[in-house]
Design a protein around this nucleic acid. Structure first.
Lengths: 346, 346
DNA sequence: GTGAAAGCGCTAACAA
DNA sequence: TTGTTAGCGCTTTCAC
């Protein structure tokens, strides 16, 4: 019941056992040159006094915190939650703790998150760049300080750091080809902000698929949005009031596709009969909406695991971390559901 | 390009300006008794040398970290992402940083998260208890150490700490009454684990609504699940093969409702014609599935804000924090969509 | 196998 | 207005 703040330190344990703090520290860290009996006594006393290791003091002394910071744009996107799972798995294996900061897709928050992590002396940073971010100086700073930094999904090659991405070009290519193979010819693309490289790659993959299949690229069928449900709605309206009525839409990601579907339904269009649609990211809701949404899966957990592995490899290799940035490209997987299949198989 | 780890400290700034570290520290902290010119010089030199405040050292010295830790069961549930937004807003106003730890609904992770936060000397903890958690000793420890702890949504009164919840009883009462008003009489409830108090309250609210409307409570219409899509599917199957075919279902939360809907559809039941359904939590997907899901909104952002406010009030009041736990109960809001409305209005 | 002592970087009394 | 000094709790060299 007491609100006593019992700050038990290794000194208290030392006093109790008539040994020194140094010995206690060594015992707790399982130092080889300490008698087993001493270790045992120290551990028992630690438990009895309810001692709690002070990470702050330890970090200050060691110059490392055993914490990795993860910056994600939003915890409300399943994709990122899933990547974080992968990261946590590997971090646990390496005896590291993961702390998360959400940028809310805002540059200022993202910058603040990086600063917080730097000030908190995290040993490494994993990040996915916010949609709003153009200036990357805060990440350069992490890099220049020699702190391991690995980007995932929303990356930028200019930074010269390691990264893990899914092959967005290939994913877009597959998605678009799938629509073509289903008989669609007037395939529109609702694109994202082109400074975000994954969105740019998806546009390029779309164009490549059209080229390979000898379908002319029509600029009127490409609209640019801000990658959200609302934006998806708006972009779809634009497409419907444009000169050419598309018979299919490749949306830059699932939320955008969701918005587009709402507009299609409101316009009385049958999906996929009148118009087919496919998204990107395999968000959880896609399976449950009507029609269920075809999309591209991004191997989220693997992405997290690989990003974390790159980070911990770097942590071990020390100073030369950013000397040879590596780029891991995961294979995306097409997921065909109802929204894109005009001619269902037997 | 260099990978130099330039550990610039206040000593470096002091040397540069021929003053002492203490003065630099005071200048950086905008201490009143420092000449404006000195402050200016210090700040400029700090920028020039690319000095970064070392939070670790500062925390060790001050015994406080200006960090609050938030423990959430899962970042993949929109509800929690949304609450965290609320928390961050208030934390920012108070010049605090928010770090998130996800328990993945597992007791062991949750315990580890609490330990990490304690070891990292966070100044306060906000938490929502995982579904799996029964033993609450780790939270007691936070409390006993005199560290402000505020629970939100998944709380437990036994802990004797402040909390913010939505009125789950009232929400369940409203949801059930809504079904009754729509002409349903054989209303089933897919319940959650009863050791989780919010799930228990929802069951009680359901029963109360039936009582008030003179509808007998039938135990065959109450099934207990584990609160997930899969569990929703299973429970619904149980209900369909039971003695009485329900004409409505009140599901303990939205994912459970989603699973139940899948089973209903598979059984060829029309929703809401043959069977109506309502969920709880207002997860994002509910608006987009077919039929759209009626549910109960929980004022997530407000919940986060209020929880954070309770915490910061406590932080200021100091030692007596846990002496007078407060409990804030927010009003839930019924959201009627297609899945529950048998007789749509004009 | 353990002790003594120094120091990580910062801040707050107390002094001047 | 600024300097001096001590210490937060832990770890680690160097002794013995």
């Amino acid at each position: 019941m007491s609100d006593k703040i019992s700050k038990v330190t290794i000194m208290d344990i030392a006093r109790e056992l008539n040994i020194t703090a140094a010995t206690v520290s060594r015992a707790l860290n399982d130092h080889p040159g300490i008698k087993e009996s001493t270790k045992k006594a120290v551990r028992e006393t630690a438990v009895r006094l309810n001692y709690k290791h002070n990470r702050i003091a330890s970090s200050l002394r060691l110059g490392k915190s055993n914490i990795v910071g993860v910056i994600i744009p939003s915890a409300e996107i399943n994709f990122f939650g899933s990547v974080v799972h992968g990261i946590e798995k590997v971090a646990n294996e390496n005896n590291y703790t993961v702390l998360i900061y959400q940028s809310n897709e805002l540059y200022e928050y993202e910058k603040k998150g990086v600063q917080t992590f730097l000030q908190s002396q995290v040993d490494g940073v994993l990040a996915s760049i916010s949609k709003e971010t153009i200036n990357l100086d805060h990440y350069s700073e992490v890099r220049n300080r020699g702190i391991p930094l690995v980007l995932f999904d929303r990356t930028d090659d200019k930074l010269g750091v390691s990264s893990v991405v899914v092959d967005d070009f290939a994913g877009a290519y597959q998605a678009t080809s799938h629509l073509i193979e289903n008989g669609c010819r007037r395939i529109a693309h609702i694109a994202g902000q082109q400074h975000v490289n994954i969105f740019n790659l998806r546009l390029k993959g779309y164009i490549e698929a059209l080229n390979v299949h000898n379908i002319p690229v029509n600029d009127d069928l490409i609209v640019y949005g801000k990658v959200s449900i609302d934006s998806g709605r708006d972009c779809m309206r634009q497409l419907l009031t444009g000169g050419i009525l598309p018979d299919a839409v490749f949306a830059v990601e699932d939320f955008t596709a969701l918005g587009a579907i709402q507009t299609m339904k409101a316009a009385g269009l049958k999906i996929p009969g009148d118009i087919a649609i496919i998204g990107f990211a395999n968000e959880a809701f896609g399976e449950y909406i009507t029609p269920s949404l075809s999309t591209v899966n991004q191997q989220t957990v693997t992405m997290g695991e690989e990003a974390a592995r790159l980070l911990f490899d770097g942590l071990r290799s020390g100073e030369t971390f950013h000397a040879h940035p590596r780029k891991l490209v995961l294979k995306p997987q097409l997921i065909c559901r109802q929204s894109s299949v005009k001619f269902p198989g037997p």
